[in-house]
């Protein structure tokens, strides 16, 4: 009887466990093992083990510049998402139906379209013969080419990531007592001061968790830098793809993937600690 009650939880979680081991842990372990294999241009992956993949990646300015760019783009995207998403969520929460539903759909809508299709949409807008460039020519400012630049990647990333910022912030605003803002006004605070001193500190948790999601997803994004960054502007995920598919240097690709994974993990864990400290302060 006792034995059975002890094994039941394990038994019930078995499908999930198998799924997690097979789909997440196993590929990760295989990638880790692969990253320590030696590679030879003529002979392919060798059965000897080495640290040279890691030393190559970490000493090559080419790869370092890509890591740096990845972090920078993810960071800028996060900051922009906060700057646009927080006011947007606030405005959304002050809207009445049907407008609220309409705008919520507009915000969530992009998630319903494949990233690839969206990226093509952006490349049509941003290219040298695109709509924006044509408009600029018509205004006499000359052609502008945003496509294949970091700006293009950031614009498209912000577009995709906004819902992940707006939804947690909006949820946080929904939970606030609407009387708080009225109380602040009645005590003489302007709308802006009430927002800054009363509303923002209390939705900071939503903002922080939104930033965490946006940062993580941006740093590991693949399709957008691939399609809008062109051949020259690589980010972490696209350079891993290159190593696997073009250079066929799988161990090196695996090493890059691992470095990115660890770096991302460290940043997010540090950030998460910050969120928890904040949560203790706000929620007690």
């Amino acid at each position: 009887m006792t034995a059975r009650t002890h094994s039941t939880p394990w038994f019930l979680s078995l499908p999930g466990l198998i799924f997690f081991l097979g789909m997440v842990v196993l590929p990760l372990v295989l990638t880790a093992v692969l990253s320590f294999h030696a590679y030879d241009f003529n002979l392919g992956v060798r059965d000897t083990y080495t640290l040279s993949n890691y030393t190559t990646v970490l000493s090559d300015p080419y790869f370092l510049s890509i890591f740096w760019r990845t972090l920078r783009i993810a960071f800028i995207t996060t900051v922009l998402c906060v700057m646009i998403g927080v006011p947007e969520a606030y405005i959304l929460s002050r809207m009445w139906n049907p407008w609220r539903s309409v705008f919520l759909l507009v915000i969530i809508g992009p998630l319903l379209v494949s990233v690839v299709v969206r990226s093509f949409g952006w490349s049509m807008l941003l290219g040298s013969t695109g709509l924006i460039s044509k408009a600029s020519i018509m205004l006499g400012l000359g052609p502008v080419r945003i496509l294949y630049s970091e700006t293009a990647i950031v614009i498209a990333l912000v577009h995709v990531m906004l819902p992940f910022m707006i939804i947690p912030v909006w949820t946080a605003i929904q939970k606030l007592d609407p009387g708080l803002e009225s109380a602040a006004w009645s005590l003489g605070a302007s709308r802006f001061t009430a927002m800054r001193r009363i509303i923002l500190p209390q939705i900071s948790l939503g903002v922080l968790s939104g930033s965490l999601i946006v940062f993580g997803l941006s740093a590991s994004s693949f399709a957008i830098p691939g399609l809008l960054g062109g051949r020259r502007l690589k980010m972490a995920a696209t350079v891993v793809y290159d190593e696997y598919m073009h250079e066929l240097n799988w161990p090196l690709g695996a090493a890059i993937a691992f470095i990115v994974l660890v770096a991302n993990l460290l940043i997010m864990l540090a950030y998460n600690r910050m969120i928890e400290a904040r949560a203790r302060k706000v929620l007690g």
Binding site: D177, G179, L180, S182, A183, A184, W185, S186, L187, G188, A189, S190, R197, I198, P201, Q202, K281, V282
Partner: peptide, 29 residues
Amino acid sequence: KPNRRGLGIVFQTYALFPHMTVAQNVSFG
């Protein structure tokens, strides 16, 4: 506007600012 009237209001839910201490709440106005 409500912030120019200078009236004191006590709300049904009290609407105290949860992230501020008692003294900070009172001092806000």
